[in-house]
Nucleic acid binder design. Structure first.
Length: 467
RNA sequence: GGCGACGUGGCCAAGUGGGAAGGCAAGGGUCUGCAAAACCCUGAUCACGGGUUCAAAUCCCGUCGUCGCCUCCA
């Protein structure tokens, strides 16, 4: 079995073969921190979290870098609006985003570089690019010379002349070509800046990623990821900068996630149709968000609305249903039932791997997990004991863990202090039922339900769980 | 206008040449005092029109529709 990944640059699924055996260098573009992060950012981070977890499951060591763009026009504007120091503003949003990721059960990247911490690398790269003729200074700015790069446009499937005719580009007459992009931006009065051979200024957007990759992961990496809105111009420009300098292919696999849609449009800061991560998590669980993603292809657009979230939450409950304990009077499942449970376990694990190996087909992988859920529930209904249910339940937990699902049981806010009293009420209700005082026994059940305790009667007794 | 992706049952969605997965919702049944859960059962001319093939959801051409990028964007 081999892992295949869809590569944006070739537009094909390719067998995954990292530069170094069993070691993966992965760089994912993180956010520009000038505002609260929304669930579109969460989607991108989570997609690559799933990819990372699966690679680790398949035996790779993953060096995972995610950057923060912590200096740029929008940060400066916003800081000015608020009368704040731009670096403080950025720092605050970085810390908030890191908390968001933790709440979403997204593993922290191995390294989290920031643009402002790479200034020396950036300046050195720009100097080299100028020396090699790929860049030119202009009144305190430095621009990349796209015409000098014959491969420019390869990732996004464009060519310079097509773009020129139709593009709505603000023409800066001083630039050699309208598509030349800034490597270094000279500072206007009052803007944060660093000294450079071209005067005080700050890095352009694209160069920071090239610099961070070069410094932290090396000249070549295995996976470069981000949202598909970054393909052009951001990733195209990264390739131009890095490859012009190193003469080597930059990333082996370009991986892009689709956009989260809200109200039929891409969720984005500029459109204002946002749901913040905080807002989502105040109403729903991290697992529900993850199920939503897992149930569709990471490359396609994902529609977000209340119905989709509700479906994800129900699907999550179904996964959890398999983890419930044996029936109170379980006497052991018959041999054929145990046999088919065994068979399903093997089928689930191989099906899961086969699906995930096919460009992280998580929806297919989930389907196999649901097959296991059914098998476990069947076995339980046929009287399987906790001991008999343990191996398939452990497998389910393991594979869900690979996808980053926690499957936490809901528990009471105040710990287990309420449990003896719940048991007491259950005993009391049992007496009421024996005496056929059903209105009273139903009252107990209904009132407990209002408090978040679900009672379920079976032939052999009553079980309960937190809702 | 240029480049690209997509259109599968009420909803989400896998499947890219030969049996149309899975989840949600719905209906019926088992169990139950009732309920819930679980279990069993039920459903698709794969956007439309041509073509290639013994065989097409899957390949080719066209039409319609949705979305993304081409400007900051995950």
């Amino acid at each position: 079995m081999t892992l295949k990944i869809y590569n944006t640059i070739t537009r094909k699924k390719e067998v995954f073969q990292p530069l170094e055996d069993k070691k993966v260098r992965m760089y994912v573009c993180g956010p520009t921190v000038y505002n609260k992060a929304h669930i579109g950012h969460a989607m991108s981070a989570m997609v690559f979290d799933i990819i990372r977890r699966y690679l680790e499951f398949r035996g790779y060591t993953v060096h995972h870098a995610m950057n923060f763009t912590d200096v740029d026009d929008k940060i400066i504007h916003r800081a000015n609006e608020l009368g704040m120091d731009p670096f403080k503003l950025a720092e605050g949003y970085i810390l908030e985003f890191e908390r968001n990721l933790e709440d979403l059960n997204i593993l922290p990247p191995t390294i989290k570089p920031r643009a402002t911490q790479e200034i020396q690398t950036i300046i050195a790269m720009i100097e080299d690019l100028i020396r090699a003729g790929y860049a030119y200074p202009l009144n305190g700015d430095v621009y990349f010379r796209v015409r000098k790069d014959p491969d420019y446009g390869r990732l996004s499937g464009r060519n310079l002349d097509d773009m020129r005719s139709g593009a709505r580009i603000e023409v800066d007459e001083r630039k050699e070509d309208p598509l030349d992009f800034a490597l270094w931006k000279g500072a206007k009065p009052g803007e944060p800046s660093w000294d450079s051979p071209w005067g005080p200024g700050r890095p352009g957007w694209h160069i920071e990623c090239s610099a961070m990759n070069l410094r932290h992961l090396g000249e070549q990496i295995d996976i470069h990821g981000g949202g598909n809105d970054l393909i052009f111009p951001h990733h195209e420009n990264e390739i131009a900068q890095t490859e012009s300098l190193t003469g080597k292919p930059f990333a082996r696999y370009w991986v892009h996630n689709g956009m989260l849609q809200l109200g039929g449009e891409k969720m984005s800061k500029s459109l204002g149709n946002l749901v913040s991560i905080e807002e989502f998590l105040s109403k729903h669980s991290a697992d529900a968000f993850r199920i939503m993603l897992l149930n569709s292809s990471y490359r396609g657009p994902l529609t977000y609305n209340d119905e989709i979230v509700a479906q994800a939450e129900r699907a999550l409950e179904r996964l959890q249903s398999a983890l419930r304990p044996a029936l109170p009077a379980a006497a052991g499942a018959p041999e054929p039932a145990l046999k088919s449970l065994q068979t399903q376990m093997a089928a689930t694990e191989s099906g899961f791997i086969e699906a995930m190996d096919d460009d992280f087909n998580s929806a297919g992988a989930l389907a196999h997990l649901f097959d296991l859920v059914r098998a476990v529930n069947q076995a339980r209904a046929e009287g399987a004991t906790d001991e008999q249910l343990q191996p398939p339940q452990a497998l389910l937990r393991k594979l869900c863990g690979v996808l980053g699902l926690r499957l936490e049981e809901k528990t009471a806010q105040g710990g287990g202090a309420a449990e003896p009293f719940i048991q007491l009420l259950i005993e009391l209700r049992l007496e009421l039922r024996k005496q056929k005082l059903y209105p009273l026994s139903d009252l107990v059940r209904n009132r407990l339900a209002e408090l978040g305790v679900i009672l379920e009667d079976t032939k052999d007794g009553t079980s309960w769980r937190w809702q």
